[in-house]
């Protein structure tokens, strides 16, 4: 397998699926409001391009913002946990509660708390809640995995807690943190979209709003175009994180080295 074929095979497969889809829709003359043909979807995408792109940008903006906040909170919490055992055993279980509660279930509460006219803020908070746990869990794992001998080396050199954190724990945990972030960025998008659904109209004009609205109007072609943009957003975010991960770990981390060859 060469590099080119790993990139192009999925694209070719997708094209074939579209062709078959187009063919079947025409063959059975399926109604536009049940299942539009790919050409109908692309036409609709083209017609509504401006509105759709604005909505995509809106959703992406909240997603990225929530992702950043979630990452900072998670790493901060992990650092606090690494410094204080008592805080770790008292607070870590509470963070698990956030993780296991479906975002839809707490959405109404958050929306009421921040005010109905503050939909974007509610969406942001909900997205943060959905996204922060993987980074917390992975950073925590990274801190716990720090090489015992390296820790002893720092002790022998009388390193301060701060030095140990900055020069040992954080760099050692970096691959773990990045793994958590790769999961989190996807969750942030899901969190944003779900929260947009629950928050309803408000001032938010994300992709969910277009999906709801075109669904109500049985404009399935437009609904599909919004879905396609949502999928592309997800892929874009994942590639973004993978690129960041690669450029940080390129020089030293084994997993990157091995994948290269």
């Amino acid at each position: 397998m060469n590099k080119l074929s790993t990139y192009f095979s999925p694209i070719i497969a997708l094209c074939i699926i579209f062709i078959i889809w187009e063919f079947l829709v025409n063959l059975f003359s399926i109604q536009l409001y049940i299942l539009p043909a790919p050409t109908d979807i692309f036409l609709s995408l083209n017609d509504n391009l401006r509105e759709l792109l604005l909505a995509t940008l809106n959703t992406l903006k909240i997603t990225l913002f929530a992702f950043l906040i979630a990452t900072l909170i998670a790493i901060g919490l992990a650092i606090i946990f690494s410094l204080s055992k008592i805080l770790e055993i008292s607070l870590y279980p509470i963070t698990v509660i956030f993780q296991v509660t479906p975002v839809v279930a707490i959405a109404p509460l958050i929306i009421i708390w921040v005010g109905l006219d503050n939909a974007e803020m509610a969406i942001l908070i909900l997205s943060v809640i959905v996204a922060f746990f993987p980074v917390l869990a992975n950073t925590n794992l990274g801190f716990r995995s720090v090489d015992k001998n390296l820790k002893e080396l720092f002790l022998i050199n009388r390193a301060s807690k701060w030095q140990t954190l900055i020069k040992l724990n954080l760099p050692y945990a970096t691959p773990y943190i990045l793994t958590g972030m790769k999961t989190s960025i996807g969750l942030a998008l899901i969190g944003t979209v779900v929260a947009e659904f629950v928050a309803g109209t408000g001032s938010s004009a994300g992709l969910s709003w277009i999906i709801i609205e075109s669904g109500n109007r049985l404009d399935i072609a437009k609904l599909f175009s919004a879905l396609i943009l949502l999928v592309l957003s997800g892929i874009f975010l994942f590639l973004l994180m993978s690129t960041i991960e690669y450029s940080i770990l390129r020089r030293w981390h084994q997993s990157v080295k091995e994948n290269e060859s």
Binding site: D147, N149, L150, E152, L153, F154, I156, N157, R158, A159, Q163, K167, L168, P171, Y172, T174, R251, W252, H253, Q254
Partner: peptide, 24 residues
């Protein structure tokens, strides 16, 4: 202290590894 494993920090160059005690 020299451990049985080299116990180097993979994210640092050779130079940055040996100067760690001075830094600390």
């Amino acid at each position: 202290f020299v451990f049985q494993n080299p116990t180097l920090m993979p994210w640092r160059t050779v130079m940055e590894n040996i100067t760690l005690p001075l830094e600390l």
